[in-house]
Simulated assay, not measured.
Amino acid sequence: MLADMEANETKQALRKNAIARRKTTTAAQRLHAGETIARCIGGLPLPDRRCTVAAYVSMGSEVETRPLLHTLAEHGHRILLPRLGAGLEIGWGEYSDAPFEDYGERRPQEPSGATLPANILESASLILLPALLVDAWGNRLGRGGGWYDRALTHCVPGAPLVAVCWPWEVCAPPLPREPHDVPVTATLTPDGYTPIATSVG
């Protein structure tokens, strides 16, 4: 119990520092970073055929993901995006040309249309998810809501889990890891796609 409390306190401090660093970026820098990762699509572990990709709509100081979503759609891939519901529910919607639904600055925009069940993630050949920090073992620090940790229980074993973040957020020191944390298999930053070389034991 004490170890869990210490891990949580450490995570909160790391989140605070990471978000403060991100806030020094400008909207133009975030868009440029997003356009850069969109050009990295050829390096992603996608099958040769059209497939389903789970992704997300960026918010705030995150690397802008809309250019990447547009590029994936242009290549014919089906894109699933989170629908958060009450915040604890797990649901997905499909990316389309329709405008996103806006729920305020504290929540990401969501696709319009029907809400798909949590187990739709079983159809995803690639899962892109946000991260504040990722260490050399694939441990990922998110915003702390636990939504992705719950969602990822529905993905197919072996599906690539790629954390999207800024280059300086890929760190060497190990991050605190709790039993419910799901490690990622690679990172995607404006510097490119990088598989995680060390697996978590």
Results as ranks from 00 to 15, higher is better:
residue 166 W to F: 14
residue 86 A to Y: 12
residue 130 P to M: 11
residue 134 V to Y: 05
residue 109 Q to S: 09
residue 178 E to T: 05
residue 120 I to D: 10
residue 122 E to S: 13
residue 143 R to V: 01
residue 75 H to A: 12
residue 128 L to K: 02
residue 143 R to H: 13
residue 175 L to P: 01
residue 38 A to T: 09
residue 123 S to C: 13
residue 158 G to I: 12
residue 191 D to E: 14
residue 25 T to D: 00
residue 191 D to P: 00
residue 2 L to F: 07
residue 107 R to F: 07
residue 183 P to E: 08
residue 188 L to K: 03
residue 89 E to Q: 11
residue 122 E to M: 13
residue 1 M to S: 10
residue 10 T to N: 06
residue 171 C to G: 01
residue 12 Q to G: 13
residue 128 L to W: 03
residue 115 T to S: 14
residue 80 L to F: 05
residue 22 R to D: 02
residue 83 R to H: 11
residue 124 A to Y: 01
residue 169 E to D: 15
residue 118 A to R: 11
residue 1 M to G: 12
residue 108 P to Q: 11
residue 19 I to V: 14
residue 181 D to N: 09
residue 1 M to K: 08
residue 115 T to G: 03
residue 62 E to Q: 07
residue 139 N to A: 10
residue 63 V to R: 01
residue 76 G to L: 04
residue 64 E to R: 11
residue 188 L to P: 03
residue 101 E to L: 15
residue 6 E to Q: 15
residue 107 R to M: 15
residue 91 G to A: 10
residue 31 L to R: 13
residue 136 A to N: 12
residue 163 A to G: 05
residue 190 P to Y: 02
residue 23 K to R: 12
residue 112 S to M: 07
residue 166 W to M: 07
residue 199 S to I: 05
residue 182 V to K: 07
residue 9 E to M: 13
residue 175 L to A: 04
residue 124 A to Q: 06
residue 100 F to Q: 02
residue 54 A to C: 15
residue 122 E to C: 15
residue 16 K to S: 15
residue 133 L to Q: 09
residue 110 E to A: 07
residue 26 T to L: 11
residue 24 T to I: 04
residue 140 R to Q: 04
residue 26 T to I: 11
residue 30 R to V: 02
residue 22 R to W: 04
residue 157 P to M: 08
residue 52 T to F: 08
residue 83 R to D: 00
residue 42 G to P: 02
residue 86 A to N: 14
residue 9 E to I: 06
residue 85 G to K: 03
residue 96 S to L: 12
residue 3 A to P: 01
residue 185 T to H: 15
residue 102 D to E: 14
residue 73 A to G: 08
residue 171 C to N: 06
residue 133 L to H: 06
residue 186 A to R: 00
residue 158 G to T: 10
residue 22 R to E: 04
residue 84 L to G: 01
residue 104 G to D: 04
residue 167 P to K: 07
residue 147 W to S: 06
residue 141 L to C: 03
residue 10 T to Y: 00
residue 188 L to G: 01
residue 63 V to N: 02
residue 52 T to K: 09
residue 84 L to I: 11
residue 55 A to I: 04
residue 113 G to S: 08
residue 44 L to E: 06
residue 135 D to L: 05
residue 143 R to T: 00
residue 10 T to V: 11
residue 194 T to Q: 15
residue 126 L to R: 05
residue 116 L to S: 08
residue 162 V to K: 08
residue 175 L to Y: 04
residue 80 L to R: 01
residue 114 A to S: 14
residue 196 I to C: 13
residue 44 L to F: 06
residue 54 A to M: 05
residue 186 A to K: 03
residue 185 T to D: 10
residue 67 P to G: 10
residue 197 A to G: 00
residue 11 K to W: 05
residue 116 L to K: 02
residue 66 R to W: 13
residue 77 H to S: 08
residue 44 L to I: 13
residue 135 D to V: 07
residue 47 P to G: 10
residue 196 I to P: 00
